[in-house]
């Protein structure tokens, strides 16, 4: 048992989740694989979206995986960083837009 919650070597074992629920695990990986194929969006665009989301959900495994995937797809570090900012902007925007709720409540309670 590792003495920390995240071990980089665990990423290689991702597929093992199927061992304890074969049907659901298999369905998930089929779906996952299909999602990242070329479609209306290119595999490259999807990789950048995945990288942005990886940061927003703060998944270290996903960050490792999609940084490497980006390199494999020839994505530049500038593109990667812009994607991270796009995620960060939405995340901070999601916080800040609640400021309107705060303002509404403040106004309602105030004379």
């Amino acid at each position: 048992m590792a003495d920390s919650y995240y071990d980089p070597a665990d990423l290689r074992k991702f597929g093992n989740i199927t061992d304890w629920s074969e049907e659901l695990g298999t369905k998930f990986f089929e779906y996952y694989g299909k999602v990242f194929e070329e479609g209306a969006l290119s595999a490259r665009e999807k990789s950048l979206i995945a990288l942005a989301v990886a940061h927003v959900v703060k998944c270290p495994y996903c960050i490792d995986a999609y940084t490497k995937d980006g390199l494999q797809k020839g994505i530049t570090k500038e593109e990667m960083m812009e994607a991270v900012h796009a995620g960060a902007a939405i995340e901070s925007g999601a916080t800040l837009v609640h400021g309107v709720q705060m303002m509404n409540k403040y106004n309602k309670l105030s004379m």
């Binding site: 070329e38 290119s42 595999a43 490259r44 490497k68 390199l71 494999q72 797809k73 020839g74």
Partner: peptide
């Protein structure tokens, strides 16, 4: 060929 410890991506897309 990749400039680092990663595999090349799809040849057609590259």
């Amino acid at each position: 060929n990749p400039s680092g410890a990663f595999l090349p991506g799809d040849q057609v897309a590259m």
